[in-house]
Computed example of a mutant assay.
Amino acid sequence: MTDHEDLVRRIERDLMDSYDEELELEIEDRHPDLATHALGAGDTEAEKSQRIAYFRELFRLQAELVKLQDWVAASKQKVVILFEGRDAAGKGGVIKRITQRLNPRVCRVVALPAPNDRERTQWYFQRYATHLPAAGEMVLFDRSWYNRAGVERVMGFCSDDEYEEFFRSVPEFERMLVRSGIKVLKYWFSITDDEQHLRFLGRIHDPLKQWKLSPMDLESRRRWEDYTRAKETMLERTHIPEAPWWVVPADDKKKARLNCIHHLLSQFEYAEIQRPEVQLPARVRNPDYLRHPVPADIIVPAVY
């Protein structure tokens, strides 16, 4: 094998490794015992065809996301995207697919924990405002200031006065963001009662996913109807022209991911940024350079 052929083979292996990240995500959505099935063995021809179509479209959309990212950075746009929905609705899955191939310096995810004692005494939006984007940045909120309209309302973590003040303030807060030049997108991932039930059962019986279930999640399951009423009130009172809500039907995870990413891209009149051709410079070689051997006791054992 020539040096050129060897180089091509190594590049191909590197590309295959990047594609394998997608396969790992695919397996992650199913029980580990079904890993082989998820990779295609035993699928019907129709299932294989659907799966191939999903990956092809996901790759295409992710390529468009890279173009969007470059355009945001080059044109100094400021973008905020909120992802809301019931527990196990699939918000994390679509966020993972959106950010998977993007530069974390341009596109970052914010997933805040419950407020601490100090934050509870601040202006409600204060801890979220510190994470808003500068020029050339996209910020994805995995849950957002709408916690007050959902979990805080249902679980009694806020008073009636605080709840009403939120609805008075949030439209003005979002209009201020838009007037300042921030593009605000708000997605609600909608799943049915039966689908959430099945996904919770899957997490209960999967040791790799049990960490995703908290006591709050289990309580939210019991209070399904309370969350439904809270969601309906939230959508009714905060759906404004400057920052409307978009509802993503999410019983089918794959379709939800593709539909959300496709819609997100449609909200921008972006263009591909032309890059100058990259020329890899020759490495400088000094005759007196000597690379010292790595001590054997600090090398990670080759278990695999």
Rank of each mutant, 00 (worst) to 15 (best):
T121S: 14
L68A: 06
Q122I: 03
A63R: 13
F83R: 06
V66W: 02
T99W: 04
I81L: 12
T99P: 04
V79P: 09
R60C: 01
E24N: 13
N103L: 05
I27L: 10
K76E: 13
T99L: 09
R120C: 05
R97N: 07
T121N: 09
E84K: 03
D117K: 14
F59T: 10
W71T: 04
D17Y: 12
E57Y: 05
S18W: 10
D70F: 00
I95S: 08
A41D: 11
D117H: 09
E28D: 15
R105Y: 06
L23G: 04
A35N: 06
V66R: 13
Q100C: 01
Y19G: 03
D20N: 14
E47C: 05
E64L: 08
R120W: 07
D43C: 14
K67H: 10
V66T: 06
K76V: 01
A73E: 13
N103H: 04
N103E: 00
D14T: 13
T36M: 12
G90F: 09
H31W: 00
Q122W: 15
L65K: 03
T121M: 11
P115E: 02
A53L: 08
R97D: 06
E28A: 15
V94D: 02
D20R: 15
E21D: 14
I27W: 04
L68P: 07
I98R: 03
